[in-house]
Design a protein around this nucleic acid. Sequence first.
DNA 1: TGATGCAAAACTGTCAGCAGTTTTGCCGTA
DNA 2: TACGGCAAAACTGCTGACAGTTTTGCATCA
Lengths: 223, 223
Amino acid sequence: MAQKLSTDMDSASETASHADRVYEALTQLIVDGELTPGMAVSEAQLATRFGCSRGPVREAVSRLQGQRLIVQAPNLRPRIASIERGDVVQLFQMRAALEGLACRLAAETMSDADIAALESDLERWHAALKAGTADDIPELDVHRRIAAGSGNRWLVEWLSGDLYRLLSLYRRKSGDRPGRRPAAHDEHWQIVRALRSRDGDLAESLMTSHIERAIARLPHLDS
Amino acid sequence: MAQKLSTDMDSASETASHADRVYEALTQLIVDGELTPGMAVSEAQLATRFGCSRGPVREAVSRLQGQRLIVQAPNLRPRIASIERGDVVQLFQMRAALEGLACRLAAETMSDADIAALESDLERWHAALKAGTADDIPELDVHRRIAAGSGNRWLVEWLSGDLYRLLSLYRRKSGDRPGRRPAAHDEHWQIVRALRSRDGDLAESLMTSHIERAIARLPHLDS
DNA sequence: TGATGCAAAACTGTCAGCAGTTTTGCCGTA
DNA sequence: TACGGCAAAACTGCTGACAGTTTTGCATCA
């Protein structure tokens, strides 16, 4: 079945309120790293930047506050959330557990066609990597597609949404070198093969180990 | 070590903004079930109810929107999120994975004193239950204390915070009969014993099964 | 009786402005 | 030069108001 294009985060619906647009733009600014963790932002400046008054900005900031991407103390300027190394380890622990679950579910519910497509895309990307023509990040995409294949809507929203954004904060802080790790391809390939053989337990365990290895590889900066 | 009293959700700090108070009150209203899932609320009415203008209300609503407890379509009144049975199953799947993780971590990091206290409280509560003098919910408390014992701050915030509130929506919708199940005590007791013997794998597996049993017991209403 | 259309009421989205607080930048002093 | 202190600037928290949209309730008609 063709899946319904993920979440309710429809990018730029035709009738989006000003607050919605500011929310989208602000989120992007944070994920892209133009707004760095710990940085204070001013409602007024954001308002002029986005061409509206402070009302919609306030709303967007509140929404991001609900997602813990922005923190705000009374009477102080809102700050982009700051993620320490300890937080990343903890978030990765949760990610390992949840992506493991996603794998187990995907092994049961993902369609043969989707698995085959994932497999061939993975091969194609690997070939392109060897040829030096690929610079997108397959890491994220493989994980995202498996999460989507789990059929668990909340898992997708959280793994590919909230948790992804939270972790992107730290990526910015630590030099941002995503993937490009030769072993990752093998691990991904093994996972996909477990999916194809519908071995949920194996897929889960492979994915968990895959992410736990990523924890071990976290940069050891201690700011 | 005495833990630092959980999150940044300090209830009623002395210098709380109006928006903060509305946020707290509104959250409580939803969790307590006075505002039922799917119900439309009016900013203006909330504003008069809480004795402020629409600004702070709008902010609180946005924050709850960020936590997916409230949904809002353009130009329409905000609605309390509506959780269907399928959603609950999916959320419980995630809960099983995460509480399993919490158990495994707690088996490593929880102090002997905390485990002993949990054990004796569990016994005391069980005795009170038999005597008919207990009507608080131990279910939640055991789970909450194990989550806290995991030492993973984000796990606590999500399990005892966001996820708990989300699931409370459905509890309201389905007759709300939390726990009071005799077998649960045994299962809790087994889990705590696994914690005491520092057997993380066993604790994890016991907790996962414990919650999966709860999934199987979910009411079969299909609204 | 039951469906339909319409006007009034209610409500959301947004803005400009005011009061009170924090931050900034400068000036005098040691 | 380095250090407080103070006034101006910047900013948050909140309010009331206005335009445009949705909902409500009534009256009309088949």
